[in-house]
Amino acid sequence: MIANSVTRWSRRIGLAAAMAAAAVPSWAATDAQGGGGGGLPQLDATTYPTQIFWLIVSFILLYVIMSKVAIPRISDVLEERQERIEDDIETADRLRGEAEAVKAEYEKAVADARSEAHALVRKAMDEIAASHATAEAEAAKKTAETTKAAEARIAEQRTEALESLKSVASEAAAEATVKLTGIKVSDAKVGKAVEAAMQGGA
């Protein structure tokens, strides 16, 4: 039955091919050239069964190889790669997030450190200023004390010097009197006179 239909079809196809050939001039020419050999070899229906048979055999073989071996193998590899790529992208994205977090943390730490340093500097400056002030005050106090003591000592020495000056003057006056007049004057009298002179002279 197959053979029957094959030959029936082959007649029609012969017609088809002849018309196809007629449609394009270049084939018409080749057809004419090949005409000597009994027409186109493609239209020789006796070769049709073998061609169809081997077409079926080879195509079924190919189909089986494709669907059982080749296609699963290729799609496996492609899927695996797709998964791997997605994984890699996932990892990259995750690491990027982590890196961003670390960066934010780092920036925060830097900012903290900076403000802390600022505070420290200010505190140190304040402390220095404070200690400066106390030291100054102390120094001023000390200076004042020293000055006072020195003044006191000067005053003391001055009175002392004045005292000694009085006695020296009295002695000198008494001696001078003796030398000039030969009169011996009592110490008390001389002292009184010197004092009066000094006060008057002063």
Partner: peptide, 10 residues
């Protein structure tokens, strides 16, 4: 065109 004509004629 040829295919249509061929099928019709056949």
């Amino acid at each position: 065109m040829v295919a249509g004509v061929v099928v019709g004629a056949a």
